[in-house]
């Protein structure tokens, strides 16, 4: 009986941790990502992610931000010439610099997790493994 009780306790703790772990992970990633955003992204995409009309695309509930994580991470790694992003017929002309030599896999995962969960966005986190695999593939 005592053993069973202990087992139940252990199970409850394990379950609690298992559930809590990603939540804490997400929160921490968002916090780290916020710092990356402020240092590298904010100037163009603005403090509220609303971008600049005709120049720098908004990061608020667009298909690029909420959709395919690989496509999003590729933009950060490889950059854009400008003009590729079209949101309801509005084009954004400034280039996005390639940040593969500037940001680590961890920083890219964190900042994308932050962006996908800020400014009214809600989407899954981006993992370091996903960024790492994509970086290797794009080499």
């Amino acid at each position: 009986m005592k053993k069973l009780f202990l087992a139940v306790i252990v199970f409850i703790f394990a379950t609690a941790f298992a559930i809590q772990q990603p939540a804490t992970g997400l929160k921490a990633a968002i916090a780290r990502g916020k710092t990356v955003y402020e240092n590298t992204c904010l100037a163009c995409h603005q403090p509220d992610g609303s971008g600049v009309p005709n120049m720098n695309p908004p990061l608020v509930k667009t298909k690029w931000v909420l959709g395919d994580k690989k496509a999003l991470a590729k933009i950060v790694l490889k950059g854009l010439q400008g003009g590729e992003i079209d949101i309801d017929g509005d084009k954004f002309h400034n280039p996005m610099p390639p940040l593969e030599s500037v940001l680590s896999d961890q920083e890219i995962a964190d900042v994308l997790t932050y962006v996908r969960n800020s400014f009214g966005n809600k989407a899954s986190l981006v993992t370091v493994a996903e960024v790492k695999a994509l970086r290797a593939k794009l080499k």
């Binding site: 603005q46 509220d48 609303s50 600049v52 009309p53």
Partner: peptide, 9 residues
Amino acid sequence: ASTGKAQYR
């Protein structure tokens, strides 16, 4: 406010 929130420019 951010630039994108400007009413008129």
